[in-house]
Write a protein that binds this DNA or RNA. Sequence first.
DNA 1: TGAAATGTTAACGA
DNA 2: ATCGTTAACATTTC
Length: 265
Amino acid sequence: MPELPEVEYARQRLTRWTTGSALTGWDLVDPGAFRPKLSAHPTPDPLAVARLQALVGRPSTATARHGKRVGWSFGGPGLLLHLGMTGAWVEGARPRHARLGLRFGDRTLWLNDPRRMGGVSYDDDPSAHVGTGLGPDALLDGSLSQVVPSRSPIKVALMDQRRLAGLGNIHAAEALWRAGISPRLRACDLDEGQRAALTQAIRAQLTEALKALDLETDLRYVSDGGDNPFAVYGRQGQPCPRCGAPISRELLGGRGTWWCPSCQP
DNA sequence: TGAAATGTTAACGA
DNA sequence: ATCGTTAACATTTC
């Protein structure tokens, strides 16, 4: 679910809820949520209890985000967080799919994650390591320098977190629609004008999506709240908002891909 | 019932 | 080394 905007929103909420407060307890409901490394699979970390206990009593001091990953520092050491496909951090009563609870006095933050692909790992310096192995952050940097040499379809290259960190299936498709570029075009075949248009489109897409996630609301995902808010994502057969031609769908890199064949030739 | 789902990674074959 | 595909992970929803 979460792409860069949702992760940034989660980071801001965690920061607001906890900065300056000491961790006072924890509840590892699902051991698979605490992993030795921030891998995609729920492999339990045998040291989880010791790691969590070592953070108890330490204050939450800083958070940092790079792509879809968050580093959370407790005066030096701390955690790396990933929301996977369905994760969200919520405050208050224990939610239905609680995987990990972190208590700060009378307030408990929960990782709620039905599909269990999200998780956390211990790190001795999360602020320094949050970007390890990732390409430039799509919002804070936005450089396509590692994307454009790829011979893969542009959408696949945009979603490769080692080339550019933060875009997922939705916002990659939406940014390409904004830029008028076919998701099938090989990244290395983009011309100068297309690169510039895409850079701008990514910035606009992410900025607007983030704006939709008001910190006072409890949306958690851009798509929460009913109607599909996107131009092409999930709209096979419906008219393109720009030119009226029907939206197409096909698999690209194993993922559902929607685009307008008329204005993204 | 089957398919698909906003993420990541490993394993193959070309 | 790189690219494409397929599968796997786990669960819910349409």
